[in-house]
Computed example of a mutant assay.
Amino acid sequence: MLGLAPLRSAPLPIRASATACGRNTSQQLANGCQLSLLAPEAAEGDTALPENMHKWRMVIAYDGTKFKGWQYQPSIPTIQYFLEDALICITKLDRKKLCLVGAGRTDTGVHAWGQVAHFTTPFSYSCLSSIHSAMNGLLPPEIRVREISAARPEFHARSSTKSKVYRYKIYNEAIMDPFHNHYAYHSAYKLNPHAMQEAANYFVGIHDFTSFANAAHNDGERRPTKKITRFDVTEMGAVLQLEVEGTGFLYRQVRNMVALLLQVGKEALPPDIVPAIIAARDRKELAKVALSAPPHGLYLMSVNYDEEILKPPEGSPPISFGRTHHLRFSWFRTVNRGLSWPASFC
Rank of each mutant, 00 (worst) to 15 (best):
P270G: 03
Y171Q: 09
I277M: 06
A343M: 10
V239H: 05
G338I: 07
T234S: 08
F321V: 04
P13I: 03
F123W: 07
R158L: 02
I14W: 10
C99E: 01
K164L: 07
G220C: 03
A61P: 09
A238C: 11
E285Q: 15
L87M: 08
Q253H: 11
V165C: 09
A150P: 08
A18N: 02
H186S: 02
R23H: 05
P317W: 09
N52K: 14
A343P: 11
P275V: 10
V204N: 09
N192K: 05
S211F: 03
Y251E: 00
N201E: 13
E267R: 15
E173A: 15
G265K: 11
A174S: 14
R167W: 00
R281K: 15
E307I: 08
A43S: 15
Y125E: 00
P275K: 10
R105H: 11
A103F: 12
L286Q: 00
D63N: 15
S26N: 03
G297E: 11
D219M: 02
Y183A: 13
V233R: 02
G22S: 02
S159E: 13
I175D: 02
P77W: 04
H207V: 13
Q73Y: 03
S187A: 14
A43F: 08
A343K: 14
E243M: 11
E307N: 12
R333P: 00
A259G: 15
N52T: 13
L286E: 01
P153G: 01
V145E: 05
N172C: 12
H156D: 11
A150V: 02
L93G: 00
V101F: 09
E198P: 05
W113K: 15
A18I: 05
A279Y: 07
Y189P: 04
V233C: 14
M176E: 12
A238N: 12
H207E: 10
H217K: 13
L2S: 02
L242H: 04
W113A: 10
A5E: 12
A293N: 00
Y62N: 11
S344Y: 10
S316L: 07
K288H: 07
K92E: 07
A61I: 01
E51R: 14
P224W: 02
Y189H: 14
G137T: 08
E147M: 14
P224Q: 00
E308L: 12
T25L: 14
T91Y: 08
Q27K: 13
L83S: 02
N52H: 06
Q28E: 09
F155S: 01
N181H: 13
H296F: 13
G220H: 00
A61Q: 15
R57I: 06
V101G: 00
P6E: 07
I88K: 14
I90M: 08
S292I: 10
G45H: 06
P317R: 04
R57K: 15
M196S: 04
A188Q: 05
D219Q: 06
V303F: 05
S160D: 01
L262T: 02
P11A: 12
S163F: 10
Y183R: 14
